[in-house]
């Protein structure tokens, strides 16, 4: 399969991640959506790396992304717990203190 197929899969995954972020009203879904998006990016990185220079840049980026995703997940979950303590809810629409 060529590069186009991978890019298409990546794009679709990205879109699904966006949908997850936008339509579900639970913070955890937002996290999941973000993970999907990161994965979509990773697919792109690796695919372009593979079909591009054959050097390591893309893979290095992907690794970096995975590491950051792990860090992000940890921090995000901590935040989610705190949000839950604060608002008694994990609906993002209710955490709107930023509006004030």
């Amino acid at each position: 399969m060529g590069l186009g197929a991978y890019v298409a899969v990546s794009g679709a995954l990205f879109a699904l991640g966006l949908i997850a972020i936008l339509v579900r009203r639970n913070v955890i879904y937002i996290l999941m959506g973000i993970e999907m998006i990161l994965n979509a990016a990773n697919i792109n990185f690796v695919a372009f790396n593979r079909f591009g220079s054959m050097k390591l840049d893309g893979q290095m980026f992907a690794i970096f992304t995975i590491i950051l995703a792990a860090a992000e997940a940890a921090v995000a979950l901590a935040i989610v717990l705190n949000v839950f303590y604060l608002f008694d809810s994990i609906k993002p629409s209710e955490a709107d203190l930023l509006r004030e």
Partner: peptide, 9 residues
């Protein structure tokens, strides 16, 4: 990949 994502949503 995609089916999982769709299911997840």
């Amino acid at each position: 990949t995609l089916g999982g994502a769709v299911m997840c949503i």
